[in-house]
Nucleic acid binder design. Structure first.
Ligand code: ZN
Ligand code: ZN
Ligand code: ZN
Ligand code: ZN
Lengths: 134, 134
DNA sequence: GAGTGTTTGACAATGGTTCTCAAAAGAGGT
DNA sequence: ACCTCTTTTGAGAACCATTGTCAAACACTC
């Protein structure tokens, strides 16, 4: 084992994981796992649906993609910037705008500690109809 | 038909709907439909699960209960106050505090119209560990 | 190339939610 | 009480996104 502990727990850059990453790079709106799976097929690649789910979950854990739930409770995914942010999402076409709200972050933390809650997380998403879908 | 159009589209106060309402009144934290169904059974009543779902959905449409999704995407329900508000929810025991954030409401609307989005809705929930569950 | 732990994918299984539709129950009039 | 019309119910099937299974394929190291 080298100093950086390579060799174990390695994440291998497989064809499948590259295909998922490529698909994610190909759009900038939120999509379901099934849609991403379909996109990969259309690009000529073939990746099992279970692998798509596994890869998306891993990327989300690594902070490379954001996962949120649409109004029907389905998980939707998108490659996002590193910084903490929220989303303005078109209910119809999925078009997404990343938004930041420092004031909101402060507010949620204040409210939580005010009530003695620890280990805070929060969800804040805005849904609407974008100009193109009016 | 009388002037107020009674007689059609009436919502009937059945035993089942009363049982769901009673169960909702019996706790002040968010619960899943299944849990509410179980609570009703424990109270001696018997209501079909489908009816529990139907009743909860109707109450949610009427604005009498709030429905949100836990971190697993499951719908959870709670009888809530009328005014628009958000929730601080204990991830462990479901204990809930209703919170209001006028500034947040203004902020989401401003962001949305700034980007030309219409027909806005938003979700904002805070999850954490309550003092009792530390 | 052999050895070893990782990754994959076809398919089954899970589990929350909705659908189906015949039977039961409320409302109202007679 | 009886009849009629509409609403509601519930047992079970159907749905469908997501996760589990596990043997075969693969990537990496030596
Ligand atoms: Zn994002
Ligand atoms: Zn749109
Ligand atoms: Zn509420
Ligand atoms: Zn708690």
């Amino acid at each position: 084992m080298t100093s950086t502990d390579q060799g174990r727990r390695a994440v291998r850059p497989t064809r499948q994981r590259r295909a998922v990453a490529a698909a994610l790079a190909g759009f900038d709106d939120f999509r379901s796992a099934q849609e991403i799976h379909d996109l990969i097929s259309q690009q000529g690649d073939s990746v099992g649906l279970a692998t798509v789910y596994r890869t998306l979950s891993a990327l989300a854990d690594a902070g490379e993609v954001d996962m949120l739930r649409n109004e029907d409770g389905e998980a939707i995914w998108r490659s996002c910037s590193d910084a903490h942010h929220h989303h303005l999402v078109c209910r119809t076409c999925g078009a997404t705008v990343e938004v930041e709200g420092p004031a909101v972050e402060r507010w949620t933390n204040a409210i939580a500690s005010e009530h003695g809650f620890a280990d805070i997380s929060h969800t804040l998403e805005i849904f609407g109809t974008c100009p193109a879908c009016r």
